[in-house]
């Protein structure tokens, strides 16, 4: 663990803080882009009930898809750089968020939705004021799954030239410095747990205390 606590590694343009910021930026920007795509789609499909099997199939299929292959294929097609990395990350983050939103909305008691229409809400109101607030625990479950996936895949992305904490792992591997690999790995693990905690905190803040049930994370 000496590597991790050596002050020399905590400064400079390739130091630990810079890599943490890079990694974190990959994570939040990817999640933001993925959310803009996935939440409306999942909400629409959940609300109308049309095309749900597609979402379920897509998420299950994705679990089988090796992220390393996805990264490499996207990079081979689009070249090295930020755009291919973000493309691959967004590709992997969209399905869990979409599935979480979809499942959350489908899980809202039909009687509650019936009542919402019955008291005279427009369809938009039914979705935004009733279905989504009650779907939040599962929506957050989707986000947590996606966040783990992104933190994990962003690490691997260093293999195809991206920045972030994965650099330490692959540079360590190349120079046969296990200390550096280990340090990078520990930082990634800590970052993943922290990001997950952030979502747990956000969930506590935004989900109404009247709504029961909380989603747990998906796969990496």
């Amino acid at each position: 663990m000496g590597w991790l606590f050596d002050p020399a590694h905590w400064s400079g343009s390739t130091g630990i803080p810079v890599r943490i910021v890079e990694h974190f930026t990959y994570t939040w920007l990817t999640l933001l882009i993925a959310a803009v795509i996935a939440v409306p789609l999942g909400a629409f499909v959940g609300h109308t009930g049309r095309g749900g099997f597609l979402i379920v199939g897509l998420t299950n299929g994705l679990r089988a898809l090796p992220t390393l292959a996805v990264l490499i294929i996207v990079v081979l097609w689009a070249g090295i750089g930020d755009v291919p990395v973000y493309t691959a990350l967004v590709l992997l983050a969209v399905p869990p968020i979409m599935a979480g939103t979809y499942a959350g909305i489908r899980a809202v008691e039909p009687s509650i939705v019936d009542a919402a229409r019955g008291v005279g809400m427009h369809e938009g109101g039914v979705l935004l004021q009733v279905e989504l607030p009650n779907a939040l625990p599962l929506v957050f479950g989707g986000f947590r799954g996606a966040a783990l996936q992104v933190v994990s895949t962003a690490t691997i992305a260093a293999y195809v030239g991206a920045g972030g904490l994965g650099r330490f792992v692959f540079d360590g591997l190349a120079f046969q410095e296990y200390d550096q690999m280990l340090g990078g790995a520990v930082l990634v693990a800590v970052l993943a747990v922290l990001v997950d905690l952030v979502f747990v905190g956000l969930q506590k803040l935004t989900v109404s205390p009247g709504v029961v049930g909380a989603g747990s994370g998906g796969n990496r």
Binding site: L148, V151, S152, T155, I156, G166, V169, Y178, M181, L182, G184, A185, V186, V188, A189, A192, V193, D196, S216, G217, R220
Partner: peptide, 24 residues
């Protein structure tokens, strides 16, 4: 188990040799 599940796979594999005393 939640925390363990959260650790990214590459990190988990790289950390193993320290815990197990195995070769990389």
């Amino acid at each position: 188990s939640n925390v363990l599940y959260t650790v990214p796979s590459l990190a988990m594999i790289v950390i193993m040799p320290v815990l197990l005393g195995s070769k990389i």
